[in-house]
Nucleic acid binder design. Structure first.
Lengths: 117, 117
DNA sequence: GAGCTGCATCGACGTCTGTCGATACAGCCG
DNA sequence: CGGCTGTATCGACAGACGTCGATGCAGCTC
């Protein structure tokens, strides 16, 4: 889904983002812009074995199961997680390349000493 | 606006995000979830001297000046950029600590060899 | 002070998004 | 096969979001 030439990886503080790259990256950030999705992602990533069954992901939240399923779909379609059905259960895992891509983009080339600012 | 104990900095793949941290971080990602804002941010960051006048930020886009102003407000209120009026013009600059915070959050602890996956 | 330019705010509008309950589908078990 | 559990999809609805034109405010210039 994400073409190899689609965007980025250099910090965005180096040179302005093109329209296409910005459009694609903004879609990924949008996927992270919901607190439930953010927690889902960290829950999956930090889960034992690097993957989690949906059944493990419903309990921690106060939203309905369809809502969780919807959020997982968003994360999946954005390329942030992968999923696979194994018998009764469906497992999700994080795709680290996507996270790393965003992380690199936001990385500031010179670490600022402005922590106190 | 961002309390020192408010969140994060450790990769989210290490341990699940708490509700509060997720809420705050999702607000920052939401600020990055719009292509115009993303381009604004990179435009500001990559501008000569590390700061840019609003007058430099209107030309590259096809949206109206009020819309640019609105997006800059979002970036400002999220703590991603700072701003200051100098005479006639208003200058914006990136606050690297905020970017670095998000970058660290998304960083994957062990670099995955799954680039080909 | 009058007029001009740069930027922010306001109010309105259409669209997108998160949420739900209801329902459909997939696989296991007895 | 019938029923049960786990997950996804559907349709609907309220609220949030991006955008605009109009307007307001600040500071410069003459």
């Amino acid at each position: 889904m994400l073409g190899p030439d689609s965007a980025c990886c250099a910090p965005m503080v180096r040179e302005p983002l093109g329209e296409e790259a910005a459009a694609e990256l903004s879609r990924m950030f949008k996927a992270l812009s919901d607190p439930v999705r953010l927690r889902l992602l960290s829950l999956i990533a930090s889960h034992e074995g690097g993957e989690a069954c949906v059944c493990d992901l419903i309990g921690p939240f106060e939203v309905s199961q369809p809502t969780i399923s919807h959020h997982l779909k968003v994360l999946r379609e954005t390329g942030l997680v992968g999923s696979e059905r194994r018998g009764t259960w469906v497992y999700y895992w994080v795709l680290p390349a996507a996270l790393e891509k965003l992380s690199a983009l936001l990385r500031t080339p010179t670490v600022p000493a402005q922590a106190g600012a």
